[in-house]
Design a binder for these strands. Sequence first.
DNA 1: GTCTATATCGGGATAGAC
DNA 2: GTCTATCCCGATATAGAC
Lengths: 211, 211
Amino acid sequence: MKTAERILLVSLELFNQQGETNVSSVDIALELDISPGNLYYHYKGKDSIITALFAMYQSRMIKILNAPANDSLSLEEFFYYLLLVFQVSHEYRFLYRNPSEIAEKYAKIARGFRRILKQKENVFDTCLKSFYEQDLLLGDTQQRQQIVELIGLIATQTPNYHLLKGEEINDGDYIFQSLATILFALTPYMQMSKEAYQELDETVRNLCKEA
Amino acid sequence: MKTAERILLVSLELFNQQGETNVSSVDIALELDISPGNLYYHYKGKDSIITALFAMYQSRMIKILNAPANDSLSLEEFFYYLLLVFQVSHEYRFLYRNPSEIAEKYAKIARGFRRILKQKENVFDTCLKSFYEQDLLLGDTQQRQQIVELIGLIATQTPNYHLLKGEEINDGDYIFQSLATILFALTPYMQMSKEAYQELDETVRNLCKEA
DNA sequence: GTCTATATCGGGATAGAC
DNA sequence: GTCTATCCCGATATAGAC
């Protein structure tokens, strides 16, 4: 593997593990067994590494978000879709650990973040609309808007919340937590029996385990 | 006012405005028109300032959380109570901007954070139990547990979510946003007409405006 | 209590040899 | 492409005079 590529991979790993601010360029070089000078030959410091990592994240996420929402989307499909979104976010989770820090340091990334978030909410809204048209979802337009906001909040902030609580949870559980919470928040507005809820909860759990 | 006191107040303001990592001890001294040496005479660096600020936050929050939950608590009272909690959190909001950073740097604070969060969830749970016993709240114990988690998530993470979206909102609106979202998430499980919901939403809005 | 001056340390960044 | 050596800078921290 080329050095430039290795730098990105190792940086991503270190950032995810220890948080962006706690990893210096020297740390990265050390971990790679190369000299700081060499690192700077490939990337002009942490800034350009982070920019490159964000570009990777962004392009993958956009691909997922552009997958056209089927107009007879099922709830299962919706959650499968959410799972894809979460998996990518999780691979680049350091970006979400303290977004405010990162956004302050890198204006470009802040814009990209907002764009992606907006697009996510659009997609959520489209999905909910589809449910509504299938008579699966109750409630009016205003409520749908609130649900979208709530899903956005859960989707982006659940990991931080669990971090705050100091809970040690592994990768799969942590994605499941987010999905389960979304399901829970969504259920009251869905035309759905308690049995169907529990079944879906189980399905989602298994999906996460496989992944 | 004594210098030691002024240091705390100005530090709090700067931290809230610019984020803890972006404010150096020199910045604080400069803002106060005193020398860095003088600052160090009173507090041994940012660490001890932050520790002192956290202690203030903690003692105020604990006082609020210890206010015994009335066993015939009304929804209005519950939201008034939440408002108090949010106001204090908001005064020390820099602590919540990137809790993971702060928790990593200051182990003591991390423990304090977790204790407070735990206590908050306990209080929420007590309130919900009271609603349940008054036949205001539907659902079983497990659902109540999930509601508590969801409220905790909304209460602590809503500000960050809006920061992430890059929305500029002022202090009052931002507290109202959190309360409104909690109300929205709670409603489906409450024995409550749509009119009662909107009325309460309005009441909460006014409460926030006054505050 | 407060100041000035200075020491220290770590991270970011570059020059030049190989 | 990679290394060593070095520089720069900002933040933290202390000493000693007033």
